[in-house]
Amino acid sequence: MDWLLLPFEVSFVQRALVAGVLVSVVCALVGTWVVLRGMAFLGDAMAHGMLPGIALASLLGGNLLLGAAISAGAMACGVTLLSRSPRLSRDTGIGLLFVGMLAVGVIIVSHSRSFAVDLTGFLFGDVLAVRDADLLALAVAVAIAAVVSLLGYRSFLALTFDTRKAHTLGLRPKLANAVLLALVTLAIVASFHVVGTLLVFGLLIAPPAAAMVWAGRIPVIMSCAALIGATSTAVGLVLSWHWGTATGATIAAVAVLSFFLSALLAAIRRRLRRPNRATSTDNDEGHRDPVKTPEQIEYAT
């Protein structure tokens, strides 16, 4: 037990844990929709598409958070505009913007003498250097994400599963899509300075994907994803403390490992239950497998 609790006796590790929990919550609220809509590539592109703004702000001595927000906003607007082209697929547009923004960012950063240090901080952050002001910013981001997710729940749900029905119900799917992009931007921008883009993307995708293997309702998926993310943060901090590994990368690795572990346990569970299904037909109604695809999620408004 001392092995587990020893790292959290230090104040900066305690702040890192709080920061990781807050990031896990905001990423669970946003990442659930990202996973359900198949927007993982977009999330990755937006996370790395912030580099030009961050690099330019660093080079000019400006505010890194503001630079990241401007760059991410430009990325979101570019994705929205390119997605309207009938001759260009959504993934192609995202890929072009991803490579273009990343290339511009590297070009800008290459003018700085601390190129390697800046890029490392951008990717992995410094969760052990979290300040009280950072925690306050993350708490505000969580509050905004929670309010927007609650108010836009029906619109996001309709947008995810049936855009035409969303039009019919007057839920304005185009506006819902724009708001969802803004939420993704909020989660990434609010978190990157603390934990880096690698950990943000890991917590944005892995915990919701792990929760979807077992849960069938979106609020439950969000809650389980937040719990998985928070647990991954705590485990990652302990492992990093004792093994001397990079903290952000360790937390991200634990989060991704949680998905594979969840998928493995679900596969074992299905295999163990298969003989029972072969001998009983009425078992299908009362004991179905957990939801695996967005189409099977309960459409509850």
Rank of each mutant, 00 (worst) to 15 (best):
L4G: 05
L4M: 07
L5P: 06
L5G: 01
F8S: 08
E9G: 06
V10C: 01
F12M: 04
F12I: 10
V13F: 15
L17K: 00
A19S: 06
G20V: 06
V23P: 03
S24N: 00
S24A: 05
V25H: 02
V26K: 04
C27Q: 04
G31H: 06
W33F: 07
V35H: 05
G38C: 01
M39T: 00
A40W: 00
A40F: 02
D44S: 02
D44P: 00
A45W: 01
A45S: 03
M46N: 00
A57G: 06
L59C: 02
L59I: 06
L60F: 11
G61C: 13
L66D: 02
G67E: 13
A69N: 00
S71M: 14
A76C: 15
V79S: 03
L82A: 09
S83M: 10
P86E: 10
S89Q: 06
D91K: 13
D91T: 09
I94M: 02
G95Y: 03
L96D: 07
L97E: 00
L97W: 01
G100K: 09
L102N: 02
A103S: 15
A103R: 14
I107E: 07
R113D: 12
R113A: 12
A116T: 08
F122C: 01
L123E: 15
A129V: 09
D132N: 11
A133Q: 14
A133K: 12
L136R: 08
L136T: 03
A143G: 10
A145C: 11
A145G: 09
A145Q: 09
A146D: 00
S155H: 14
A158I: 13
T160S: 14
F161A: 09
D162P: 11
T163W: 04
K165R: 02
L171Q: 03
P173N: 07
L175R: 10
A176S: 12
A178E: 11
V179R: 02
V179S: 13
L181A: 00
A182F: 08
L186T: 01
L186V: 08
I188E: 07
S191K: 09
S191P: 13
V194W: 05
G196S: 13
L198H: 12
P207S: 14
P207K: 12
P208T: 12
P208H: 10
A210N: 06
A211C: 09
V213I: 11
W214E: 02
G216E: 07
I221P: 03
M222I: 13
I228V: 15
I228E: 09
I228R: 02
T231S: 04
T231C: 14
A234H: 11
G236I: 01
L237E: 05
V238M: 01
L239S: 09
S240P: 03
H242S: 15
W243V: 08
W243F: 14
G244T: 12
T247L: 07
T247H: 09
T247D: 07
I251D: 12
A252V: 13
A253N: 01
F259I: 04
F259Q: 08
F260A: 05
F260S: 12
L261H: 12
A263D: 13
L264C: 10
L264A: 08
I268C: 11
R270P: 07
R270M: 10
R274W: 04
P275I: 07
P275Y: 03
T279L: 12
S280P: 01
N283K: 11
H287V: 15
R288A: 15
D289L: 15
P290Y: 13
K292H: 14
T293C: 08
E295W: 06
E295V: 15
I297D: 06
